[in-house]
Design a protein around this nucleic acid. Sequence first.
DNA 1: CTGAAAGCGCTTACAG
DNA 2: CTGAAAGCGCTTACAG
Lengths: 349, 349
Amino acid sequence: MRSEDIAKLAGVSRSTVSRVINNYSNVPEATRAKVLRIIEQYHYEPNSFARALAGKRTDTIGLFAISMNEKADASRIYQNSYFAPIVDLVVDTANARGFYVLIHTVYSPSDFQKIKQAFQQKRIDGGILVGTQKDIELVRELVSQDSPLVLIDYDISEIMAERLNKNHLAVINSMDYEGTVQAIEYLIKLGHREIGIIKGRINTFSGRERYMAFENTLQSHGLPVRDEFILEGDFLKETAYLETAKLANSGNLPTALFCSNDDMAISAMEAFAAQGISVPDQVSIIGFDDVELASRINPKLTTVRLPIDEMAKASVEKVISLCDTVEPTFSTVSFPAHLVIRDSCKSLL
Amino acid sequence: MRSEDIAKLAGVSRSTVSRVINNYSNVPEATRAKVLRIIEQYHYEPNSFARALAGKRTDTIGLFAISMNEKADASRIYQNSYFAPIVDLVVDTANARGFYVLIHTVYSPSDFQKIKQAFQQKRIDGGILVGTQKDIELVRELVSQDSPLVLIDYDISEIMAERLNKNHLAVINSMDYEGTVQAIEYLIKLGHREIGIIKGRINTFSGRERYMAFENTLQSHGLPVRDEFILEGDFLKETAYLETAKLANSGNLPTALFCSNDDMAISAMEAFAAQGISVPDQVSIIGFDDVELASRINPKLTTVRLPIDEMAKASVEKVISLCDTVEPTFSTVSFPAHLVIRDSCKSLL
DNA sequence: CTGAAAGCGCTTACAG
DNA sequence: CTGAAAGCGCTTACAG
């Protein structure tokens, strides 16, 4: 069943059918009703590809979860508890707005081509990128096609420096710096002076922000930043477990460990437990993100909560509105983060 | 950049360019190389919609998570921990095979239209449905379009009865019945004789299977099936919490409670805890699915493990092979389930 | 208000 | 082996 069939049945031309479908104003109510009735009756659905080819939108947005530094493993992106809820919320929000969502994960530069292709092949009207690394080249390529694009967690200053802000672009961030300051100052208030960190992926904006906030806060309070308490991490469980085990074995422990996300905090707790080191009695632990597990493990994890839901929803709204506007616009929102105190930190006072 | 541009640059016709792109055999190596080089050089990407319109595949599969009985709430489908990993694995597997995946959640019959549309509008080559209810009408509609379709968790006998098996169709199931039998017999072996259940959504195949296995196993062991220990459930946390709280308040407890999935088992544990009833001392609890949380809560949940990963992967492989075959085929696989014993069940002997 | 026609960017018989 | 042409199913100036 094609628009031509509908046209015949309704006694009009394809042009008119198309006008009805696209809700153009210049068709009389009677004609519109007639055409609509036939469409209803035959359950006609315009071919989305033909529409797209003729210049209409695809009503599909792309969602790309980028995690380029890791080794091959079928499900590895979801090792990161931060992605899953974003994916879920984006899908639900977009669906509710009448959009399909096309998902692709990116583990390697060649996967990244898939994003560009999705745009170039016109599969999507706009896209959301999450987990973008500091890699302006990649973003520039995308943005230079001037496709509506939303970046979750990206350093705005890089955008400004490259003057990419004259395109259809938006950035959705969280206040990682401020959240981390809250966390560290809370530890300090509890009397901790030897505070360590497991770093996040340092080529992400949030990874850098959390680390910088950690270092700056210690320094501004006159506390030491000790190399042996700075553990390398990548936001993933495995590395965090290994690094924590190493720290535990060294016999030289900080009194508190700030973990750049919850996945790593929980792994650290497990690693300590495996060595018979008790949390929070021997070492306090604090995380970031407030994933579902955080409030259900034992001890319950003190962490910094991010409004992931709102961020995901905002991304969808933003990308849709970017698709709707002809004029290039750049905008940015930063969502607040706040400390959630539970049971994984002990007062030393 | 269109195929025509490439053709000009390569000094051939669009036909030849197309033949190269589609890897047809009847083009000499020299010509092929020449065309390929130009394509490379200009980063040409054929427009996917034009290809699809001209009859090629879309290289996209649809994934539809159906959960029609619930009330409106933006993220409700993911209240169900069973869906999330399936979504994740399907995306990763499909991506690895070069397919995009188009996702849509279905909460209402009108959402369901979106599935049909996705097929009718030719947005996807094939689709995977998860959470399908007993609703052969719906499946028949889809199948009668003869689109490659994979159903996860569906009663095969319904398919056979309707002779839908002459279409491009596959069903991926798990051995819910056998898994439940293992769980119940384990409880019996521990000395339990008063065993209750929280039912799953009874219009799903797995919901029915788990319930039937529960009832049959009790009966075959000469044990009572008491109405007051049969709690209505829908696989979701909230209802399970409420029903368990009611049971706890009644003052009349079974010694063990089989929960039709882990989400409900965990909620039941929380409801009991809130009433000061200790698991497993006062009541043993057993779940189904083995979600991530199961092994991390306290006490660790004894449950029935399902190979969700393999099921998700198999679905993708299946739908892709269905897209590749001209002849209609029907196939079905049932994945094993097995009991994982942890700490939430107590021996009464 | 409305239809005929061109065009979107491909693929694929068809003919040579 | 290869090109010209028709066709996939829409939309949108254009002309009336």
